[in-house]
Structure formats: C-alpha cells, structure tokens
Computed example of a mutant assay.
Amino acid sequence: MARQMVTNFNGILLFRRDYRERDMLIKFLTEEYGKKMFYIRGARRRGFKMAAELLPFTMGEYVGDLRDEGLSYINSVKTVQYFEQISQDIGLNAYATYVMNLIDVAFPDNQPLGRWYQQLTSALQLIDQDVAPALIANVIEIQLLGVFGVQPELRWCAVCGRQDLPFDYSESYGGLLCQQHWHLDPHRLHASQAAIFYLRKFSVLDLSKVHSMQVKPTTTTQLRHILDEIYNNSVGLRLKSKRFIDQMGSWYQPLKPRDDDDSKQS
C-alpha cells in the first residue's frame, strides 16, 4: 500500500515543467527522501503565492504531502535560498544545470541519496560563487562514475597495484596503468601527470571543504578530455546540458577573471 505523510523536508529544485494549462510539475532532490516529483496546482496563475519560492536554482525547507508513489504536493515554504549569480550568468547557469541533470539521471526517484544531497548543495554554492565551475562539474562527474556502473581503478595500477610510478588512464583496463605496463595498452589516453593527479584527487574530494580551486588551463583541458572519453565510451551518456557547455566554448567569460598560472586548492 502506498504511503503518504505531511512533513517538513529540505530540497534542491532540480527542474520545473509546465503541466496542463495552469499547473506545474517540479522535481526536488530532497535531503531525506531522494528525488520526488511535486504537482503544484495553479503555479502558472498570476498571483500564485509561492511563485517566488519555487523559481529555478533555489533550495529551502518546505512542508509537503510526500508520497511513495505518484506525485507529491507542497503545502508551504518555510525558508528558501536563491542562487542569484547562477540565475544571472549564462555560464554558471550551464554548469549548475549540468550537475543537477547528472544527479537526476544517475539515481532513481524516491531513493535516499545519502551524502549526495550535501555534495550537490556544496557544488551549487561554489558555482554560485564562481569557484571554478568547470572543475566542480568534473568532481561530480568523476564521483558519479560508480553510480553509472563504471568504477575505474584510481588508487593504484590496475595490473600490478603499484603506486610509485607515473600513471596513465586505460579504458581497456578500467583505470590507471603504471608506467611499467603502459605497453599493454597502445590506446591509453596519454594524459599528463597533472591531469591524472586531479582525476585521482577529485574522486575523493569533499566539496563542503573546498573554498577555492585553480588549475592550469592545459591541465583543465586534459581532464575534460579524459572525462569526455569515459562518459562517451564507458558510460554512454551525452546530456543536452553538456552539449551546451561544449558549444559555449571560448565565448563565455566568467563573472570574475582568475589567475590560472598556478595550481591551487584550498
């Protein structure tokens, strides 16, 4: 028998969709219950009382009628936080949309997601502060690989377990190869040691502890190439929001220019 309850919950608004003539469907990632779809009656009517609290790129505490099956309902909004810079900047908007899309695709609805609520909250807060949005997206991509059924070996060499030699990434061997075994895969990615360093570091990075992040542009480009190869060939995922980021290319300039001459993280 389907269960329903009226309760407080914390949620990040993942997306909104018009429904019928005057209504809306809104999907939240809730801290307590995972992803849930809510039916908002009259949300498109002029003067709807919760209109400002249910805008894109918001998170807050809500009171709702939550159901295990079918649509849930929001009764009221207790507190709300707006990601204002994300809403105003097309580039930040693109990266925030992408990481939320990844979370949405990776997990089924109505399943508690543990640490992922806090990890997404931290990601959106950092992107809203224009803290290396492309790198924040990389962290989410890398850490979701296991959820997508691709669990690359990033701790040591997939063949011998050594950790003391230079590494490269091998899709054929499902992770890192040490220099002693590079000959086993002529199609390894020939990545720089800096890119491999960040690939490994980002796989365990807690975004709630990050305050700034700077990586050399050449390393950022290589890291992007590695992840594109993995997502295209091993995950088989190509989201519309990711294609938009690729199309942004060089025309997008972030809100605050950054000095990327040195690699730093704090």
Rank of each mutant, 00 (worst) to 15 (best):
E84L: 10
S87R: 15
I90G: 01
L92K: 06
N93Y: 07
T97W: 03
M100N: 05
N101G: 09
N101S: 13
N101F: 05
I103P: 00
I103V: 14
A106H: 04
N110Y: 04
N110W: 02
L113K: 03
L113W: 06
R115E: 05
W116S: 00
Q118W: 04
Q118S: 04
Q119E: 12
Q119A: 03
L120S: 06
T121Y: 04
A123C: 02
L124C: 05
L124F: 00
Q125T: 12
L126F: 13
L126D: 04
L126Y: 13
Q129P: 07
A132V: 08
P133Q: 02
P133C: 09
L135K: 00
L135S: 06
N138E: 12
V139E: 02
V139M: 00
E141A: 02
Q143H: 03
L144H: 02
L145T: 05
G146S: 14
G146N: 13
V147F: 07
F148T: 08
F148C: 03
F148V: 09
G149R: 04
P152V: 11
P152H: 04
E153T: 14
L154D: 14
L154G: 10
R155Q: 12
W156T: 13
A158S: 15
A158Y: 00
G161S: 06
G161L: 08
G161D: 03
L165E: 14
P166F: 06
F167E: 07
D168S: 11
Y169H: 05
E171N: 06
E171D: 12
G175Q: 13
L176C: 08
C178D: 01
C178M: 02
C178W: 02
Q179D: 15
Q179E: 15
Q180L: 14
Q180M: 13
Q180P: 06
Q180A: 15
W182L: 14
W182Y: 15
L184I: 09
L184S: 09
L184T: 10
L184H: 05
D185I: 05
D185Q: 04
